[in-house]
């Protein structure tokens, strides 16, 4: 029976190891400094934020879906920011399981992307969004919204328009945070407020704005965004932001979102 024992041993040795672990020693400051940031992973998408909100108290997402067409503008920075806010709105419509809302938002995203001269492959994403919305495939829609945003950003990089990439992320973050802080302000709990603790994201966005060309930094809208982010950093530093902090953050995000939508 040696061969049976041999096969058992072989099968057991080939087993994947599952377990629990606290990783070995702490990271050194040098290792913390050398950590890389990959924007498509380091910055959370609104869907991730909303998943955390749903665990605390599922909001009435249907009431939060926005309708309407963004105001026309020729300012490329503003277009990129609005495009980001629309991506966040797309996630809200997905949470609300509002197929027509997702289709409308997808159409607006593609219209704005056209103004930024993105490639045909991005435009094809609009059809995918429609198809998934028709089939109520909400999980696929979440992935498609993120993929669309990433493809727009990739196109911007390839067209040497990388300055706009940060603005798309910024727009999505502003709209997502505006909505989250509004919901948390209405029914404050420390547990919910802890979701807003995001100083590293604000620091990252500020660094990215700091690296924009001087001309773009002087754009009144971008300058306002920078000043608002600097102010908001104080509101989200505590492990549990206070009720007052949440109110201040919500007010700042709402005025920033309004400025993005209407221009200055």
């Amino acid at each position: 029976m040696n061969w049976i024992r041999w096969h058992l041993l072989l099968a057991t040795a080939a087993l994947p190891a599952f377990g629990s672990r606290a990783a070995e020693s702490a990271m050194t400051s040098g290792q913390i400094d050398q950590a890389v940031r990959v924007e498509s992973l380091t910055i959370p998408m609104p869907g991730e934020f909303f998943a955390a909100i749903n665990k605390i108290d599922r909001p009435n997402w249907k009431q939060l879906v926005r309708v309407g067409t963004p105001e026309a503008t020729a300012n490329r920075a503003q277009i990129a920011l609005v495009l980001g806010t629309l991506v966040a709105d797309g996630y809200i419509a997905v949470e609300a399981q509002d197929g027509q809302g997702v289709k409308n938002i997808g159409k607006e995203i593609i219209n704005l992307a056209k103004k930024l001269n993105v490639s045909q492959s991005v435009l094809g994403r609009g059809n995918s969004i429609n198809d998934f919305a028709e089939n109520n495939d909400w999980n696929a829609l979440r992935e498609e919204l993120e993929a669309t945003q990433n493809e727009v950003k990739l196109d911007m990089f390839e067209q040497k328009d990388s300055n706009l990439v940060t603005l798309v992320s910024l727009g999505a973050w502003v709209r997502g945070t505006e909505l989250a802080s509004d919901l948390i302000e209405r029914a404050y709990t420390p547990e919910a407020a802890r979701l807003l603790r995001q100083p590293a994201i604000i620091e990252y966005l500020l660094e990215q704005i700091g690296s924009l060309p001087q001309g773009m930094k002087e754009d009144p809208l971008v300058a306002m965004l920078r000043a608002t982010l600097e102010k908001c950093l104080d509101y989200v530093k505590a492990e549990t932001p206070s009720e007052e902090n949440v109110t201040q953050l919500r007010a700042a995000m709402a005025s920033m979102e309004k400025a993005i939508a209407t221009g200055l």
Binding site: A35, S40, L41, T42, I43, E146
Partner: peptide
Amino acid sequence: RDGYWPGEIEPNRPQFLEVNLF
């Protein structure tokens, strides 16, 4: 998530990625 982190790794030189979690 749609994004991914590709790279090169070698023995005794771990790689680190910053993420923001909820």
